[in-house]
Each structure stands twice: as structure tokens, then as C-alpha cells.
Design a protein around this nucleic acid. Structure first.
Lengths: 150, 150
DNA sequence: CTATATTAGTTGCTAATGAAACTAATATTA
DNA sequence: TAATATTAGTTTCATTAGCAACTAATATAG
């Protein structure tokens, strides 16, 4: 392998994905903070499905968020510490814990929705819908090629 | 915002990027491990430019790898612990530390190169070069829109 | 019905990240 | 040249992630 080919690799996809992801996360957290909400992107991504579904088991959250159960445990821990959600033991299957939003969880959800939209627009500036579609389709195919990485 | 719109968001880019990145990282580390090399993707991404350049200051590594200086310090720490690199104080500017590969660093570099190539092929399966180009261009534009997130 | 397997979730360990405060060396400028 | 600012890198503290080993509860097989 030539040094040039190596350079090409190093400027490759992995690094770009890493960097883009970091930048998006940082911007979202910053925007939320600027408008007075203290929440990480991962915490937000868990909150949404709970709101949608009314309640969700941790397993369900893992499937929806493409995260492993350990990560979900800890995200729910963090959300519970902030009093945004509570765990409720499932009455039918005592292994299962259903996670539900508290009132302040619902409040925060609605506060942060417009922040999310704002961040999304900042991310997509100068990028056509068509390119975004291709982009998402490539991501899905990568995940498909490799398994979801959970 | 409707629940459907929310779902759309939650299946959005952020999560896909996150998941794809995690899957790629995991596959690379797994492939390396399977062939007997113990190295993380981030460590590898630092190693490459050092090999290319012969030696590199930590600042240079940060610029090339799009990582902040703290991360570089710690990655170089890890590589030094594994005896893959050494830090050498720059003779002209004593603030600067130049990082160079040891012999086992070079050895590992050449051992892992084909693993990288293999992983890259696995990632790109069923994805046309054209889509990859669009994909990378979207990533670059996102990074550009937001700053590099370092 | 009892032994075994599976499932949901948690915990301990290790690695990576980011911000801010810090040290030592070099550059600037008055 | 002396005082100040900037730069390269490190350290500290807090957060986050993944893997593997673990617990408790349910489901399955004999």
C-alpha cells in the first residue's frame, strides 16, 4: 500500500462519520442548553419513544433506539435521576420494567421538540433532500451489512 | 407535532449515524482481534498518519484525525503503553512532542492494513461508488455546517 | 412437577470523550 | 529585555459506552 492510499483511507468514512456524529451531538446539546434544557442527545432519543408509546419496556427502547440493554439501563437511570421518567414493574411479567414520563418529563419533551427541529435544520443546511435520502439509505445499508452493532 | 412525526424524527439521521458508526467500529475491532491484533479503531486512526508522515506532533495528529488534544494525549498514552509508539521531544520547539512508531508499531501497522481493507469491503457491500461519494460529501457538508465538533 | 434454558435488567470493569484548569515553552510587544 | 500572550501538551473531573458476569423471573423439556 502506498502512502497516498493510506492517506485516502485515513480521510475515509470512519473518521468522517465519527466527526459528523460528534458535531451533531454537540450542537444539539448546546442548543438545548442555550434554551435552558439540560439533556443529552441519547437521553432525548430515549424520551421520544416513551412519549409516543405512552410507556415502553427497556427492551423495546433498546430495539427502537438501536442500543444495547446496558446503555438503556444507564440512560433510564440518568433520566430517573433527573425525575423525567419513572420505572414501573410490569404486573404481568415481573422481569419487565415499563418506563413512563413524569410530568416534568412531558414538559421537557415539549420544550426540546423545537430545539430538535432547529438543530435538524442547521445540520441539513445546503444539503438537498435527495442527498439526505441517499445518505440515510447508505447508513441503513451499512447497518444492514454489519448487523446493527448493538 | 404528531406522534407519527415524532417517530419519523426518532428514526432519523442521528440514530442511524450513531448506529452505523458503532457497527463499523465494532466490526473493525472484531476483525483485528480475530487476526490477533489488539487495537481500537481510534488508536488505528492515529497510527496511520504517524506511519505516513514518519513522525507527527500531537497537534498535527489532532488536525488529521479531527480530534481534540485531550483525546490525542490519551490515545498516544494508550499506544505508548502498548509500546507501539514513543514520544520524542522536538529539538527545535521543546513544547512539541513528536510521535514515532516503534518496530512493533510498524509491525502492527502492516498486520492491520489488510484487516482495514477487509472491513472496508464489508462495510461497502451492496453500495455503489457513486452513493459512497454522495455519502461522504454529505458528511463533509454536515461537518462544515456545524464546525468539526472537536 | 422439576431441572434446564431463556429473558429482562443490573453491575463492575475498561476505554473514550469533553470542558476547564494547569504547566512549561515560545512569541509578541512595549 | 521584561512583561504579557499564545501554544503544546497534560491532568482532573464528570459523563458515556460496551462487554461480560451476574440476579431474578419466566418459559420449556423431560
Amino acid at each position: 500500500m502506498t502512502k497516498e492510499a493510506s492517506l485516502k483511507f485515513h480521510m475515509g468514512m470512519g473518521m468522517l462519520i465519527n466527526s459528523a456524529h460528534r458535531a451533531m451531538t454537540k450542537r444539539f446539546v448546546q442548543n438545548a442548553m442555550d434554551s435552558g434544557s439540560d439533556i443529552s442527545l441519547d437521553q432525548w432519543m430515549v424520551l421520544g419513544p416513551i412519549w409516543q408509546l405512552g410507556s415502553a419496556s427497556q427492551k423495546e427502547l433498546g430495539e427502537i433506539c438501536l442500543k444495547d440493554k446496558t446503555s438503556i439501563t444507564r440512560l433510564v437511570d440518568a433520566l430517573e435521576r433527573k425525575s423525567l421518567v419513572v420505572r414501573i414493574e410490569d404486573q404481568l411479567d415481573h422481569r419487565v420494567k415499563r418506563v413512563v414520563l413524569t410530568n416534568s418529563g412531558k414538559q421537557l419533551f415539549f420544550d426540546v421538540l423545537p430545539i430538535m427541529e432547529k438543530t435538524r435544520e442547521e445540520v441539513r443546511e445546503n444539503i438537498s433532500d435527495e442527498d439526505i435520502d441517499t445518505f440515510k439509505s447508505v447508513l441503513s445499508r451499512i447497518i444492514n451489512n454489519l448487523g446493527d452493532g448493538k
